[in-house]
Design a binder for these strands. Structure first.
Lengths: 195, 195
DNA sequence: TTGACAAAACTAATACTATTAGTCAAAATA
DNA sequence: TATTTTGACTAATAGTATTAGTTTTGTCAA
């Protein structure tokens, strides 16, 4: 029984790879153990359960998504910021369909880290919304609007829900145009930049 | 071995009830067999597989959703139609979370009926969009915009993704306001009614 | 009314799933 | 070097979907 040198991080790395390559549904204990050259029960030395592992994927996904979203939105405002943020999310989901699927799972425990990341993400969107003149409670409602629109679009795209022979890239731009127009009309528009 | 008098429809009815009450994930062959007072293998006289059963739930959900959406939108146009259509969908999803979850599954085969229902659903949204002056390919992109926004919102709501202590009903109205404004600005607005 | 046949329920078995308990060796520590 | 902790193992359990083969029930025809 030579040791494989596993730890929780390496297991999570492998889980993310399997989920992204073969789908979250293909992530089984047996599949993951095979990937790591080990027998299934050995994984329980590093992970509490498959549910806990999926939860780890969810948190990793949110962390990475927050990172790329921050980078994308940095130094932009108004329509530019919205565009950059939205594309960062869509691009991330397409590059990491397994992790994104894990983020779509019904929320479970709400750990400390999850709340922290969720809060940071909300703040990022709030910053974009400030450029449209949305503040306070009104802005929080619009955070949900943006989250819903982006989540729904990406979820439909990844799930093959767009059946018509019509360019999805163009549809995404139309979505962003619609959101931009709606946000502009609903807010006070402190600065006139970007339409 | 007295006969239970099952057929494909009764099995699908029971499956829908279990899925709506206990969640789509709770719908197992054993659970469904117990619900119908029968042993698990007996179900295979009426259903090809669990996957096929879930597919049946998906189709039933789309059929019912199309019905309530049609009724809701009938006789309305513009903002009224958008409002009615959106609320019909949200209400249906909350009344039938199991069936709605089945509709969120990645699309599989695309049967004849699925294409027919999908087409009818697209036509229904197109009719609403005509009130905003959207036609042709532009309208088809906006169908995706509406689908995405509604799907994302309902998915987040049902999945517990809205964590903030903030009224979800109000957020939904804000979403509709935003979409209405965006659709109005983007289209040619053939009739001035409803703002 | 009986005889034949088809449909539906069953039992038994297979191959998967996650998971736990208990064992032994390897690595880390005293 | 001795001890303790850690990690991988084997074996086993209980769940999952599913198939094969058997028996019984209901239907339809003679």
């Amino acid at each position: 029984m030579p040791r494989a040198g596993l730890d929780a991080d390496r297991v999570l790395d492998a889980a993310a790879q399997v989920a992204d390559r073969e789908g979250l549904g293909a992530l089984t204990v047996a599949r993951l153990a095979a990937e790591l050259g080990v027998k299934p029960p050995s994984l329980y030395n590093h992970v509490q359960s498959l549910d806990a592992l999926r939860d780890g994927l969810t948190r990793r996904g949110y962390r990475e998504l927050l990172d790329v979203s921050r980078d994308a939105a940095a130094g932009r405002s108004g329509r530019d910021a919205l565009h950059a943020l939205a594309h960062a999310q869509r691009d991330y989901a397409r590059a990491h369909p397994g992790l994104y699927a894990a983020m779509e799972l019904p929320v479970a425990a709400q750990s400390e880290e999850s709340r922290r990341i969720g809060g940071a993400y909300v703040n990022l969107i709030l910053a974009v919304l400030r450029g449209y003149g949305h503040e306070g409670e009104d802005a929080l409602h619009h955070v949900r609007v943006l989250r819903a629109a982006l989540r729904g679009f990406v979820s439909l795209e990844l799930g093959g829900g767009f059946g018509l022979p019509l360019g999805v890239d163009r549809s995404f731009e139309v979505l962003l145009d619609t959101l931009h127009a709606g946000l502009t009309l609903g807010g006070h528009a402190p600065r006139g930049e970007n339409g």
